[in-house]
């Protein structure tokens, strides 16, 4: 005979009940003080739990790469969704980012007659920082939100339960293809961002601000080396892992119907954007 389950714990006494009232004003203030102090602590704990769960989901997704089936078709479909469908927004944003950065830096460098440095400066900024970071933020907003919404609506409509009931691992079927696709596509989009950004910079620098072609390209070639490009692509790879993990985690743990899906979508974008910006600093610090 198995042991009896523990009886439910007695309900905690209501803080506003008669027992507490006898404690008087001082007691009530003490309780309120503890509550106020406890709330941020709980928020921090919730945040840590969130990070832990996202890392776990992402880790399981990555570990599943070694577990068959390969899910090639699903991965390609996700790459098409995250990558190909993001092309217009990436091209547009990168062209104008390169253009406006050139415009502003030309004005600044003109103050001490160093306009020739514009090409190199913009090149380094794009490849090391702007390319990966802005690509990450754009993909988080466009594809991360959609991933969280799709998995979240599958959760609330019992489609994930149905996968489990059919002996299909939802991590293998849903998370793995999205993680792999995000990891592969983010560096590709970043490389495109860098190239189109440089072209935008070249156009404004040479056609609008009057820089000569050699002035622009020679500095760019001297200042930007392959380490800058690789470090930007490495960051983009990390951002892909972050976006995949956060979006899949937020979708996978969605609860509460349509409202829950909405919350999951919004928080997926906010959390992955903040995580990209914070991790960007630490990666930049760690990399040469």
């Amino acid at each position: 005979m198995p042991p009896s389950p523990p009886h439910p714990a007695p309900a905690p006494q209501d803080a506003s009940g008669p027992e507490h009232a006898r404690g008087g004003l001082l007691g009530r203030w003490a309780v309120r003080l503890v509550e106020m102090a406890g709330r941020p602590a709980l928020t921090v704990l919730d945040g840590i739990e969130d990070v832990g769960r996202a890392v776990r989901i992402g880790g399981m997704g990555l570990a599943n790469i070694a577990i068959p089936p390969v899910r090639l078709r699903l991965t390609i479909r996700q790459m098409e969704f995250i990558g190909v469908q993001s092309l217009p927004i990436i091209v547009l944003t990168s062209a104008f980012t390169g253009a406006v950065f050139t415009l502003q830096s030309h004005r600044a460098f003109a103050l001490f007659g160093a306009e020739g440095m514009v090409g190199g400066t913009v090149g380094v900024a794009l490849t090391r920082e702007l390319g990966p970071t802005l690509t990450g933020l754009l993909v988080a907003g466009r594809a991360g939100s959609a991933m969280a919404a799709e998995i979240g609506s599958m959760r609330v409509s019992e489609q994930i339960d149905a996968l489990e009931a059919m002996a299909v691992d939802p991590i293998n079927y849903l998370v793995k293809p999205r993680m792999v696709a995000a990891m592969l596509v983010l560096p590709m989009l970043t490389a495109l961002f860098d190239m189109v950004g440089v072209l935008g910079s070249w156009f404004v620098g040479t056609q609008v601000m009057g820089l000569s072609e050699p002035e622009f390209w020679v500095r760019l070639g001297e200042w930007v080396d392959w380490d800058d490009v690789w470090s930007g692509l490495f960051k983009a790879w990390i951002f892909g892992i972050i976006i995949g993990s956060v979006a899949c985690y937020k979708g996978y743990y969605t609860a509460g119907g349509a409202k829950g899906v909405g919350i999951a979508t919004t928080t997926a974008v906010v959390v992955s954007s903040v995580a990209i910006l914070v991790s960007n600093f630490f990666i930049a610090w760690a990399l040469p």
Binding site: S153, Q159, D161, A162, M166
Partner: peptide
């Protein structure tokens, strides 16, 4: 689980 089939309350078909 491979020995089971399950009909869900709201069907749970893949959209």
């Amino acid at each position: 689980r491979l020995r089971f089939g399950m009909v869900f309350q709201h069907a749970a078909l893949f959209d």
